[in-house]
Nucleic acid binder design. Sequence first.
DNA 1: ATAATCTCTACCTATATTATAGAATTAGTC
DNA 2: GACTAATTCTATAATATAGGTAGAGATTAT
Lengths: 152, 152
Amino acid sequence: MISRQAKYALRALIALARIKPGSAAQTSDIASGEKIPKKFLEQILLRLKNQGMVQSRRGNRGGYALLKPASEITFAQVLRTIDGPIAPLPCLSIIAYARCEDCKDEHTCEIRKVFARVIEPTRQVLERTTIADAVAGRAINIEALPVTKQMA
Amino acid sequence: MISRQAKYALRALIALARIKPGSAAQTSDIASGEKIPKKFLEQILLRLKNQGMVQSRRGNRGGYALLKPASEITFAQVLRTIDGPIAPLPCLSIIAYARCEDCKDEHTCEIRKVFARVIEPTRQVLERTTIADAVAGRAINIEALPVTKQMA
DNA sequence: ATAATCTCTACCTATATTATAGAATTAGTC
DNA sequence: GACTAATTCTATAATATAGGTAGAGATTAT
């Protein structure tokens, strides 16, 4: 399960992608429009800002706007920013690899092999699907994805 | 990330699948062999027993053994027993479906659509891979999986 | 009997999740 | 310049989850 926070982040980014380019949306508007607790959303937007996904303007008539084009913000980036690694095992994580302390041999670990097969298509989808895709209502078709070889 | 408990459960089941049929393995042996805290493993085996995956004998020379053939215990079953739903969103769960309270319309939710694509191949692998596969060292090849249509 | 083992319940600690509160800062507007 | 509306930042809190420990009780083989 992804966290509620991650879901909120995706919804907020989608909302920001929908506003007129050049304009900004205020936290309150997004919060009420998406039914997200306002002060909670503030923190989420702040994290997205620190990651360089959105920009903000303070003060009267301030608000948030996307910093990068929606087509360059992937679901994977958002999930990694909010929830951390996408991988089901530490030893399969790209952004936070860690050896399983209790694993005898990573290369022969059968559990790892199974989850390597699991995470592969997941990454394919999450890294190729962007906020723009979500806004446009075109989720990537899994059948169109090239099949890649097993990870090393 | 799957929980450590789930990883322990999988390893314990694999260990049980390796012992001589008809015999039993004791918690202590599995615990030391797999580097799992013994009392923690006890609880895990108990849960697996209550789910009908393993059987136990108490008292002197007691222990655990698989109740079902290893080829009939899937990774998905184990994960669901220990960690709960496999789905990334409540609204995509088979075993614990729940509407997202803050979702306007489930059928047009773009986030849901994306994660529906994500969970599909994951389920394919986890529901087809068994403890026997892991023991035999043959993880299912993702390329061999039939591609299915999008979920409704 | 007794020793070994599973069974069951309770407990504990640390961390993550999901928020809420409020003061500080900034920027537009009158 | 004062006012107001907004973000920024930090702190706090309630709740849940994860990971593990403890120990009494039940059961079985010897």
